[in-house]
């Protein structure tokens, strides 16, 4: 009679899992730390929760009068310091962005803005603000409603509407494969100046 598996064996197996897990995690840790030097000791436990976040280099400022009417827009390059695992240790990366003035608030008439990173949250291409409705209809598989202005990505044809919101804020995806609205810059409007300060983290650049 062939006997293969007893209760006692089951207990052995269950007990061995945490022990083997601990040993392999301990052995793996130095290796992971070598490959990803920003992680601390016991990297295998900690590393997975602390992705490196880039830091902004300087604030970009625009005069609000540069946006004379609704849907005027400006492209800009925002600089960030990224951790880089070389002897230099960091690199400065430029992120293309776009600031668009939206139609004014009904209540007080003050200008409203959206400031998006132009790096597509889908697979990292650089997308554009395409105010021309005919161009969107011809090239991006999406026919805008009259008066609807959109951002559109040439790579995989995602279309973002800055007037609509999803759970991550303005720029809802109205067409295409993108999983979420664009990454947003944190900005404020003071004394007639639009100051763009930092970027929502996520994705690679």
């Amino acid at each position: 009679m062939s006997m293969k598996f007893e209760k006692r064996d089951l207990i052995k197996v269950i007990l061995s899992v945490p022990i083997i897990g601990t040993i392999s995690a301990a052995l793996l840790s130095p290796f992971v730390r070598y490959l990803k030097p920003s992680s601390g000791p016991l990297a295998t436990l900690e590393i997975f929760k602390t992705p490196d976040k880039p830091k902004p280099v300087k604030v970009i400022k625009f005069d609000v009068n540069d946006f004379p009417e609704p849907w005027s827009f400006k492209y800009f390059m925002f600089q960030e310091t990224n951790r880089e695992y070389t002897s230099i240790n960091q690199q400065i990366k430029t992120i293309p962005g776009a600031a668009v003035r939206l139609p004014a608030n009904e209540a007080d008439g003050s200008p409203k803005f959206v400031v998006f990173s132009r790096v597509c949250p889908h697979l990292g291409c650089v997308f554009n603000f395409v105010p021309n409705e005919a161009e969107v209809a011809a090239g991006y598989n999406y026919t805008p409603n009259p008066g609807q202005k959109v951002f559109a990505c040439p790579c995989h044809l995602s279309v973002y509407d800055p007037m609509l919101e999803d759970t991550k804020g303005r720029g809802k995806v109205v067409s295409g494969p993108a999983p979420r609205s664009p990454f947003k810059f944190n900005f404020n409007v003071n004394d007639g100046m639009l100051a763009i300060e930092s970027l929502e983290s996520g994705g690679i650049s």
Partner: peptide, 12 residues
């Protein structure tokens, strides 16, 4: 980050 040696494509 391990693949790219950071969170951006660069020297690393």
């Amino acid at each position: 980050q391990i693949l790219l040696g950071g969170s951006a494509i660069g020297q690393a």
